[in-house]
Amino acid sequence: MKNFLKIFSLIILFSSISLSTQAAEKVEYLKTDWSFKGLFGKFDRASLQRGYQVYTEVCSSCHSMKYLSYRNLAEKGGPEFSEAEAKAIAASYEVKDGPNADGEMFTRPGKLSDKFVMPYDNVQAAQAANGGAYPPDMSVLVKARGGGVDYIYSLLQGYEDPPAGVTLDDGVYYNKYMYGNKIKMANQLSDGLVEYSDGTRATVEQMSKDVTTFLMWSAEPHLESRHQMGFKAILYLIILTILVYFSMKKIWSRVETEI
């Protein structure tokens, strides 16, 4: 058993090293308490809905969300808009469909099954409209950046005047959390930019937190069921392990040897 604990602690050590090397060489990001972290982490429903509002009113003019469908907005574990609300949201977009029986393409109001409408037709169009920089698709953005949610949250609030000696080209901005500090996206958020219907004050900090929460959900739409299932699975495994441990003790008691 002693030996066993050694192995077990070795594995724990290995995991913590892997966790800490991930955290190494990173800038200190701004911290906030995320409701979705931890064993029972869940999304803050209201924050997700506000985050969706920030996304539609601010980000969506440049950034696509190609893996999300309007139906996702009403699904469990997400912003959980009512189905009627999600339908209304979908219907407010014009979706290109076709060809119809005459071979013509046509536009129609969006349906729940439609993917989020993209701001540009293709990558080239997006680049042309943004000075050569492609605004990345935001569906899995949180998982595609080393610092994850903390990085996105900090980046949105990291705009400042460049320090002396740093010259910036046209259309390039200084952000202290950006890799290399130069970013082609201008500061988008300012206090009171959006008007939250639930009365929450739309500070830059609040909007950053809400939209980052929304991005976390879009990258991990099943996060809540993952956490719930994980807790049950691990609890089940622990109970089973204890039972098996005692049966093992019983079986091995017939043999004069330590286990």
Partner: peptide
């Protein structure tokens, strides 16, 4: 039974990675 016990302990670590990180 001994392998089974060790495997279960291993699965707990495994599950932690799968469900939480």
């Amino acid at each position: 039974i001994k392998d089974g016990f060790a495997l279960l302990m291993f699965m707990i670590v495994f599950a932690f990675f799968v469900f939480y990180t």
